[in-house]
């Protein structure tokens, strides 16, 4: 059975450990990359965090608009991941994603998205509250 990446916002405290672990697991030339997950602190009355990360949609707009078929679903993890050899950096996926889950890495201006770390998402591994899990 394929594992499921589960987000439980009610457990999130907005500590942003997930962003940190993501940045360090997607390094570019030994520099931390842009985090593919963002944790937002909400406003009162419910003062807590909400993590925003790719939903790996059933019918992903990013995949449909990619002219090079660089975005493909990884059949092991279920994640839509970018084949950077095919990508021509046209940013069509960035424009297409309605949830803001395609990022542009400021270091190399390339597009980036959550790939579930190829099967062991570091955000879930390091999440101290259990808001993120992969099982």
């Amino acid at each position: 059975m394929r594992k499921i990446y589960l987000v439980l916002p009610e457990k999130c405290t907005g500590c942003r450990t997930c962003e940190l672990s993501c940045a360090y697991s997607h390094q570019i030339d030994q520099q931390p990359g842009t985090p593919r997950i963002r944790a937002y602190n909400t406003k009162p009355p419910l003062e807590k965090g909400i993590p925003v990360v790719c939903f790996q949609c059933d019918r992903p707009a990013c995949q449909e608009v990619c002219p090079t078929k660089a975005l493909q679903r990884n059949l092991d993890t279920g994640a839509i991941s970018i084949d950077y050899d095919r990508c021509i950096n046209c940013h069509a996926c960035y424009a297409a994603c309605p949830f803001g889950n395609i990022h542009i890495d400021p270091i190399n201006t390339r597009v980036a998205k959550c790939d579930l770390c190829g099967g062991s998402p570091k955000c879930a591994l390091f999440c101290p509250t259990g808001a993120l899990s992969y099982k």
């Binding site: 925003v52 960035y94 803001g100």
Partner: peptide
């Protein structure tokens, strides 16, 4: 991307 994520966040 930022504004999209804020919308997503609000929805959530």
């Amino acid at each position: 991307g930022g504004c999209e994520r804020r919308t997503t966040m609000k929805t959530m």
